[in-house]
Design a protein around this nucleic acid. Sequence first.
DNA 1: TTATACTCTAGTAAAACTATAGGGTATATG
DNA 2: CATATACCCTATAGTTTTACTAGAGTATAA
Lengths: 140, 140
Amino acid sequence: MKLSTKGRYGLRAMLEIALQHAKGPVPIHVIAEHQNLSSRYLEQLLIPLKQNGLVKSVRGSQGGYILGREADKITVGDIIRALEGPISPVDCVNELNPDECDRAEFCVTRRIWSKLRDSMNQVLDSYSLEDLKNEATDVP
Amino acid sequence: MKLSTKGRYGLRAMLEIALQHAKGPVPIHVIAEHQNLSSRYLEQLLIPLKQNGLVKSVRGSQGGYILGREADKITVGDIIRALEGPISPVDCVNELNPDECDRAEFCVTRRIWSKLRDSMNQVLDSYSLEDLKNEATDVP
DNA sequence: TTATACTCTAGTAAAACTATAGGGTATATG
DNA sequence: CATATACCCTATAGTTTTACTAGAGTATAA
């Protein structure tokens, strides 16, 4: 029940882009240096974020990444789902690609996993990048 | 953010033991056959469950496993924690064995992981084996 | 024209997961 | 007391996933 580094690094990268939004596109290497990550790895994390419309890329000199939409319209859940796929403790209650098993109808544990799934999504969707931005700038 | 088979199989095994509680100790091979699992693998899952007092073992002929305490005193969270360790989306908010990082003090994302951790534990602790037992016996 | 920065694809080492296997010990029963 | 039953302990092996690393290419501002 752990988040992978994809989700954690990706969220930190998104926050970095959000914080520097005013200054224009943020290049990968800047994020990587700030967050002490491999820029080559970060590069790969930005692909699904772009595909999901959470960031836009600007190529060429002075290029980099900008937010795909306003920070208050991007939730932590959006970011995690883009990077790690549907948030679900088991595949049989995965909404996108349910891996139904024979016993689904009688399965007593299934209901618990559904409830856990909903709760996880609810918590992660209750935070937007804007919220994180505000907290980050509050720090002295 | 997936549960491993340990957690899923373990919960099903515990439910099986709870359901057959009246008939005395339930041998591993019975659980394994009912749930279509490898009994050799199941054997390993029962070790941590026993260490955590969730089941007791009875050796010898007519032996098997019985619940370590009443079904309404065992939550799904107890079972998952016994099998998979502390329920936490990241190690830095793991209560038992916190893997604090340098940035913990300023870390904006940390608060979200705490809230997610609490929510996950709360959901899983809101179901007892007794609840599951009741649902299971309701099925025609 | 050139430096900057994104894009796409492939490969790889390490860790975690999911078992399988062998040899042992305790105990109820006949 | 012999024996079948069933738990107990440790080791290991195959597979998958994770977390990168690397090479070659493309677009664009200056």
